[in-house]
Each structure stands twice: as C-alpha cells, then as structure tokens.
Simulated assay, not measured.
Amino acid sequence: MEIFFCKSWFRAKKCPTEMWCEEQAKAAHEDGKPYTVLVGSIEQPYCFLEVTRRAVGVSFLDQLLRESLSYDFQEVEPGILFLTMATYREFEGDTGKVESGTSYIFGRDGAVTLRREFFNPQRLETSASSADVAANYSPKPEFGRYEDLIRVERSS
C-alpha cells in the first residue's frame, strides 16, 4: 500500500492541496493537527483519510474520483475509534451530481438509523434497527498504519 501525505483533499477539484513530506505529516500526527493521507497514488487515490486528533474520515473514490463511500470514525475511548457513520452515494451517470445517498448512523449500543435521501425529486426516508457493532471499533492508528481503517468491508 503506497501512501502519500498532504494538507487536504480539494473535493471540488479532485486533487490534493499542498503535498507534504512524511516528516511534516508525522509531526502533525504527533501534535494532533489535521493532515490527509492519500492511499494508492497522488493522481488517482483508492481513498483518502482525513486525520485529526479525535476523529478520522475515510473517503473511498470511484474511477472518476467521486466520493462513493465514506466512513466517519470518532474516538470514543483513549486510543479506540468507533465507526459512527457510513455514507454511500449514487451519482447521475458520469457526472458529479449525487442522485441519492444512504447513511447508516451507528450507536455503540447497536442502534442503527438509516437515512436515504433522494435529490430529484427531493425525498427522505428514515428507518431504525439494530445490529452487532463489534466490527465498528478500530484502534486509533499509529502514524503510517491505516490498514484497518481503509477496509471497505467492516463486518467481523
């Protein structure tokens, strides 16, 4: 797994901002300051991680560099992250226009809220259920060790 570091991912332009060397990113990691990790390549990453002191966002990109899937992890105990939300997006053809989005919002107690939003015409559907959320926990990553967070399949 090749990884690259930058200040952030510019979503509108689908490119990184301000590439960083490993030392810059490691200093940000150690200081709890935000930085971004590109996985795979700089021009066509498989995904990118937005790392902050208490949270990590993971965005998986399709071949057109659109965010088709994103995971939001929050630190819930020292050194332990929990996947609080997963969002899947469907796009209109080859455009960047989101047709629909489905978010799964997870509670540590196993509660799951499903929100499915359609944009043309505007419509929102919600439902609630429960699930085994044991696989939603992940150790807070050491610098450079992001393998557990970039797994698309989260089930145990």
Rank of each mutant, 00 (worst) to 15 (best):
A131C: 06
F106L: 09
R123V: 08
P121H: 07
E67Y: 05
S68I: 14
P45C: 03
E153T: 15
F73R: 11
V112Y: 10
E99H: 12
C21S: 12
E125M: 11
T87H: 02
T113W: 03
R115N: 01
S155F: 15
S156W: 13
P139I: 08
S59K: 14
E153A: 15
R154W: 14
P139A: 11
K7D: 06
L64C: 13
I150L: 14
A86D: 02
L81E: 01
M85K: 08
F4G: 03
E18S: 13
M1C: 05
A111P: 06
I3H: 07
K26L: 02
T87V: 04
D31F: 07
E75P: 07
C21I: 08
Q24L: 08
D148I: 12
G40M: 02
L83Y: 05
S103V: 00
T36Q: 02
E22H: 03
E77M: 12
D31Y: 04
A25M: 03
G40N: 02
C6M: 01
G32T: 14
R53H: 12
V76I: 11
V152M: 15
A27I: 12
L83V: 07
Q74M: 13
Y104Q: 06
F119N: 09
E22C: 08
L149Y: 13
E2H: 07
A25P: 03
T95A: 11
P16Y: 01
L149D: 09
K97M: 14
L69D: 05
T52F: 09
K26E: 10
A131E: 09
S59V: 13
T17S: 11
Q24H: 05
S130K: 12
S155Y: 14
S103I: 00
D94I: 06
K140H: 01
M1A: 06
V112E: 08
K14Q: 04
F10N: 04
D148H: 15
S103K: 01
L124I: 09
L69K: 11
I105S: 04
R89C: 08
T17D: 06
G93L: 07
L69T: 13
V37S: 02
T84F: 02
S155W: 15
Y46P: 00
